[in-house]
Amino acid sequence: MEKKSTRTEKILSYLQEEYPDADTRLNFANTFELLVAVVLSAQSNDDQVNKATPQLFKMYGTPDKMAKASQEELEELIRGVGLYRNKARHLLEMASVLAEDYQGEVPANFEDLLKLPGVGRKSANVIMTVGFDKPGLGVDTHVQRVAYRLGLVSDHNPAHTEAALKEQIAPAQWGKAHHLLIAHGRQVCKARKPNCGICILNDICEQNMD
């Protein structure tokens, strides 16, 4: 039986050939803007976030400025994003913590990121790899779905999936693996109607749905 990490390497190499430009779709100019965009992207899509952030960043582009906004102002600016009321509250609290405890800088430490309001493991992993070029592998719905269908993980628990993938993939490749699995989930291995007929992983997928 093929060693799981070897099979995972093979899968990622195929995906790299198919999606050589796989990367984040979020628009940002610095780590604070990335942090805000990632928080907004939870249970939303990148296009919705990218529509909301230009004006948001123009008005409240630093933790100090955002901490002084009202929740109502932030809600109005991000209204097109899912769960905007909760997210506005999280942004306000997060900006205050950054301004008061981190001198307005986004911490480059995973555990410190998890202490920020609105930041869970997926978000912290994304910020580590995209914002700081450090190892991180966030598990969103695409990563979870594709990893499970390919037999890389055995259940639908994101924490288990994160741990299992990190065991199988070299740390230097965590960030790239995250983007490759997302790209495949968006374009081919979709939730409702996966297009298995054109999938480059058709022969090695454990859940071919054709």
Rank of each mutant, 00 (worst) to 15 (best):
D101L: 12
Q144D: 10
E75I: 13
M1D: 07
A164F: 01
V49K: 07
M59G: 02
F57H: 09
A191T: 09
H156N: 07
W174E: 06
L74T: 13
G104E: 07
A67P: 09
F32V: 03
E2V: 14
E75S: 15
T24P: 00
E93F: 09
P158M: 04
A164D: 03
K122N: 11
D101H: 12
G138Y: 02
S44L: 05
L83D: 11
L35N: 09
M94Q: 12
G175F: 07
R145F: 01
D23Q: 04
L152R: 01
M66L: 15
A42I: 06
E206T: 10
E18F: 00
R186V: 04
A172K: 13
M66E: 14
Y148E: 04
L150G: 06
K115P: 08
G151Q: 07
L116F: 13
V188G: 04
I78A: 12
L181E: 01
G175P: 03
R85V: 14
Q187Y: 02
K176W: 01
N109K: 12
V153Y: 00
E76D: 14
E2M: 12
A177R: 03
V39E: 02
L114F: 11
V153R: 00
E105I: 06
E100C: 04
N86V: 12
L12N: 01
L26F: 03
S44G: 10
A95Y: 14
P54G: 08
V81G: 13
M209F: 10
G80Q: 15
A95S: 15
D46Y: 09
V38C: 02
N86I: 12
D47C: 03
N125M: 07
W174R: 05
Q173G: 00
E17D: 04
F110I: 09
A108F: 01
T62W: 10
A22C: 03
Q48N: 14
N30E: 03
I11D: 01
R121L: 04
H90K: 14
D64R: 14
D46I: 09
A52W: 14
R25E: 08
R89T: 14
Q71N: 08
A147E: 01
T31F: 00
N202D: 10
V39H: 03
Q187S: 12
M1H: 11
L34V: 02
N45E: 05
A159I: 13
L15V: 01
P158L: 03
N195G: 10
M128Q: 14
N27P: 00
Q173T: 00
K68I: 05
S96Q: 15
I78S: 11
K4R: 11
V143C: 11
S13Y: 00
D140A: 07
R25H: 04
Q168F: 00
D210N: 15
T31C: 08
V146A: 06
